[in-house]
Every structure is written in C-alpha cells, then in structure tokens.
Design a protein around this nucleic acid. Structure first.
Lengths: 96, 96
DNA sequence: CCACTTCGTAAGTTGCCACTTACGGTAAGT
DNA sequence: ACTTACCGTAAGTGGCAACTTACGAAGTGG
C-alpha cells in the first residue's frame, strides 16, 4: 500500500500488468533513469507486488498475483465495512 | 491513490470507515497533533475520499462512497487485466 | 459580552525519499 | 580474452511533505 503511493512506482506497476517486462524496457518511456526504476522495483518486490526472473543478463519482472490479491482483499473489506456503517447510520437517522 | 500512500492518512481513513467522526475524535489516539489530522483530512477531501459536515463548532468527516468506489474500480480493472495477461502468458508458454 | 470549545490555516523546521552519477558484477557473443 | 549488454548497488544531493507551534475564525453557553 505504501509501495503504490509514489506515482512513478504506480506507472511501473501499471506497465507490468500488461505482462512481464525487463528493467530496461520499463525504463524506456519513463521520465526517470534506469537505476531509479531498479530501486522502485526493489520496493515493489519487498512489498510482494512483483517478482523477478533472471533471463541471461536481463531481469524480467512480473506482477505477483498474491500481492495483488492482498490489495484487493483490503479494499473489499474496507468497502464492506464502510457500506455497513453507512447503512447503519442511515437507519439510525431514520429511526431518530 | 496518492492520498492513501501516507500511513497516518490510512489510519485516519480506516478509523472513518467505522462511521463519521469529528476531527478531535480522530486526533485522540493518533500519534500526531490535531492540526496534522486536519491537514490530512484536507488531502483526503481533495482526493474525494471523505466529505465534511458542520455540526456547531465541530466538523464531522465521513467516508465518501463514490471515492471509495473509484479505488475499488481501479483495483478491479487492474486485477482483471493482470489475470488476463497471466493466463495469456501461461497459454503461450504451453503452446511454445 | 465574555469564556470556552472546536477547528482551519500560516509559518517554519526536519527528516525522508526519489533521483542522479559512478561503479562493479554477471552473462553472452566474437 | 575482450567487448558489449544489462543490471544492482553505493554515495550523495535536492526537494517535498509531514509535522510542530501559534494564531484567528466561528459557534455555543452562561
């Protein structure tokens, strides 16, 4: 969650959702240098949102479904609770 | 999305999902001062995640369902695309 | 009218983090 | 062995944002 706070990191993550990409590929078209992308990928990796596969001298990164599922679960739970609280408040107001 | 990057702001938002709360209420129990909470609430408000209602000298904040729905939609779309890309990659590998 | 509560904002400071450049390491080709 | 491609990391810097304190505005009650 903290990991997706940075806009650049979100761009990287969004590019990765289309499919696996190497670091250089990701850096092309992004307004930051390749090392910067590399550092962002480390953060995303530590957050469990991406994983890495070595392919020769290249490192191919891809979205990690489990990490993404965690985020989804977080928001689903949030959604449910918020909606329940909302309904409860509306009913309380109706009764009062 | 940027708005939920900060941990303190997430705490505030999570407290708000249980139901509406005033600024002072939110600040109690949080490790930051009341003005800090107020500033965070402004950010959340500009992001469309919370809304404000005046009640005497108090300002009661609550989660804005539309904003929350936007986040949910973002992740749903992300989830779908990532999964589709994943399935496509798996099939390509199977064929190859 | 005055005291009290609740809050937003202004101003200033500090710490962090996103970024760059420079470097070293590993794999593949010739 | 040499070169080239691709990448992670170290080191250093700048800017931003999260925080504090201080203050003023708006509402309520005696």
């Amino acid at each position: 969650m903290n990991a997706l706070g940075d806009p650049t990191r979100r761009m990287i993550f969004e590019r990765l959702r289309r499919g696996p990409k190497a670091v250089g590929e990701l850096a092309d078209g992004l307004p930051v240098s390749r090392p910067a992308v590399s550092q962002h990928l480390r953060v995303l990796k530590e957050a469990g949102l991406v994983s890495e596969r070595r392919d020769g001298t290249r490192r191919v990164y891809r979205v990690e479904p489990d990490g993404l599922a965690g985020l989804r679960a977080y928001f689903d739970r949030f959604w449910d609770e918020a909606l329940a609280a909302y309904a409860a408040a509306a009913q309380t107001e109706e009764e009062g």
